[in-house]
Design a protein around this nucleic acid. Structure first.
Lengths: 168, 168
DNA sequence: ATTGATGCAAAGGCTTTGCATTGCT
DNA sequence: AGCAATGCAAAGCCTTTGCATCAAT
């Protein structure tokens, strides 16, 4: 068996100079806003796991774990966390998911159109390419999205099962 | 004055072995479906201009030009055109736009977060990188999205106007 | 006290769908 | 005739917003 996970493959975290909550507090303070209880609940929850999630999953996960934050607040807070550079928003074909940004190495994604798995990978060339292309066109890049779509190994194997007997 | 256009910069079209309508007819025939009058209206309209557009623009552009196709049919047809590989769907931050795919060279995008301009560019390395990354992770790539976000030259100039007098 | 945050429910976009009607082949 | 497409209006998602209430400084 390979060790390939099924939902989202993580990269090793960076060493955090400060936790995401601190970072959020700082962000809010600058804008004269507050790190309230619901917001802390959310950030704690989000950083307890490393996975891609959408707003709805967040709401129901919270409910499951006994906590509760209103849907409106979840949406409002997600937006803030993205603005703060703590979460990154990823618009996939069917849904919008979020992932950790702060304290996590920059990376790109492969998205399996079959099972929905999101795989993360890093490659330095992409950023270089982006800078090169941007300056070539008078652009100043602030970010990029590079998403490879296709089928993951698991789905490829499932679809064309290449039975053992054929190999005899 | 530079020659930079404002809405979407086009690449030179490829030589079409068959027109987009033929391609669509072929696609539909295989599925036992029909190239009807509304569908022809749509495809003619879409390929009359080369620009990025969203569903709503398409509806109103049609109305302006006296033609009329119901919103439902527009949505249904757009979906078919994407399935047929004739249009490509691009999910930007705020809206979903479509662009010509069939008969048009493959390319990537820069998206100005300031004015919304979409700029197209080609670069061979991206595809190679994509294949390399995919096989490295047991993936079979079927496509990719590479969107560089930032500010276009025009907006950069507008923001920091660097007045002529300063240069004297 | 004052300012912002929360929760609720309502409102909004955008997109899809059920269904009766129309139109091809 | 028979099957699929259209148009309309209604329904569905997901997300945002108005507003009264609550909380924290």
């Amino acid at each position: 068996m390979s060790s390939s996970p099924s939902e989202s493959i993580s990269l090793p975290p960076l060493n955090l100079p400060q936790g995401p909550e601190d970072k959020f507090r700082e962000f809010l303070e600058i804008r004269g806003e507050k790190l309230t209880a619901p917001r802390r609940t959310l950030i704690a929850h989000i950083f307890a796991h490393h996975k891609h999630f959408d707003a709805d999953e967040l709401v129901s996960d919270l409910q499951t774990s006994g906590q509760r934050v209103s849907r409106a607040t979840v949406y409002r807070t997600l937006r803030l966390l993205v603005e703060a550079g703590i979460l990154r928003e990823l618009r996939l074909t069917n849904r919008t998911v979020y992932e950790h940004d702060y304290g996590y190495p920059s990376h790109d994604h492969m998205h399996c159109t079959e099972c929905g798995t999101i795989l993360e990978f890093t490659n330095e060339e992409i950023r270089q390419l982006r800078e090169r292309m941007a300056s070539l066109h008078g652009f100043r890049a602030s970010g990029h999205r590079f998403i490879i779509t296709g089928k993951c190994g698991k789905c490829l194997r499932a679809r064309s099962p290449r039975r053992r007997l054929d190999l005899i």
